[in-house]
């Protein structure tokens, strides 16, 4: 895909994500929209996957450790052909395949069950070790929230990955600077962020605009292709609620907010 096609895909994914959440009237829209460019680059450019064969051995895996951003991942998976996009309107409905947080046993294409923050990243380290043991050359991608970095288990996992030199593991931090209770730096700051990862023996790639699809693509390709005996973290400076004005304006309050069908129509008008 060229840059324009990726941008167009991001636009479509934002609409599908907003539609998905609006169909239920409430959801984690802020952290879903901030992650769109990274998800699109992963699923349309960087990862080795086959939507027709979700269980393909040796495929790349993606763990959405910030599991509450499920709606954005569901939009990507549906758009990529893992399931019928009409199902996006079943978010959190009884017997849905699309629960608020990711469930590997419920949704085609979801590689790990997440939602209890910190755990998905640890599981991704296990996947990366498993891939190295099998020698299948798969890459394991894990997206973390910046607030999620406050979980102690993240650093248990980071230490192990750094010490084992898991160069098939790529972490992405959706660094939108906000968490449920306020600004990350106000609640319990994570700075200096790059230095933390470096101190855990990770290579750090800083992306000044994590909502610029070309910057994201270059960073993720670089991380994927450098099999140098060290894990990589891509720090994506993003905007919570990116691309949909009511979500961006809600700021911290966009973490989990009401989204009506009327608001969805407003987003449609903005994005088309």
């Amino acid at each position: 895909m060229d840059t324009l096609q990726l941008k167009e895909t991001c636009r479509r994914i934002r609409l599908l994500t907003t539609e998905c959440i609006a169909s239920r009237g409430l959801g984690h829209i802020g952290g879903s929209l901030s992650a769109v460019e990274a998800l699109v680059v992963l699923y349309y450019d960087v990862m080795r996957i086959d939507p027709a064969f979700p269980g393909m051995p040796g495929r790349d895996r993606f763990v959405l450790s910030k599991g509450h951003s499920g709606p954005a991942l569901y939009a990507v998976l549906a758009d990529r052909g893992y399931f019928d996009p009409s199902l996006l309107r079943t978010l959190n409905r009884p017997e849905t395949i699309l629960p608020s947080h990711c469930d590997r046993n419920r949704t085609p294409g979801v590689d790990m069950t997440t939602g209890s923050l910190g755990q998905g990243f640890s599981c991704a380290v296990g996947l990366a070790i498993g891939s190295q043991l099998q020698g299948d050359q798969a890459n394991i991608y894990a997206m973390l929230g910046d607030g999620e970095l406050q979980e102690g288990q993240i650093w248990e996992a980071a230490m192990l990955a750094g010490n084992r030199g898991l160069d098939n593991l790529i972490a992405l931090v959706d660094w939108n600077k906000m968490q449920l209770d306020g600004l990350v730096e106000d609640v319990n700051g994570i700075m200096p962020l790059a230095d933390k990862w470096k101190a855990f023996n990770w290579d750090v790639i800083h992306v000044p605009d994590g909502n610029d699809v070309e910057q994201v693509r270059q960073a993720l390709r670089q991380a994927r292709d450098a099999r140098n005996g060290r894990p990589k973290v891509v720090l994506l400076e993003t905007v919570k609620g990116k691309g949909v004005s009511f979500a961006e304006q809600a700021g911290v309050n966009s973490h989990n907010m009401p989204v009506t069908e009327q608001m969805y129509l407003q987003a449609v008008a903005e994005l088309t």
């Binding site: 640890s122 599981c123 296990g126 996947l127 070790i129 498993g130 099998q134 288990q153 248990e156 230490m159």
Partner: peptide
């Protein structure tokens, strides 16, 4: 795989390995 003194990581790393067929 000895993860050191990090039991929560131990359980989830093991979960990831199980998901990989181990």
């Amino acid at each position: 795989i000895n993860v050191g003194i990090a039991e929560q990581n131990m359980i989830c790393v093991a979960a990831g390995l199980a998901a990989y067929g181990y």
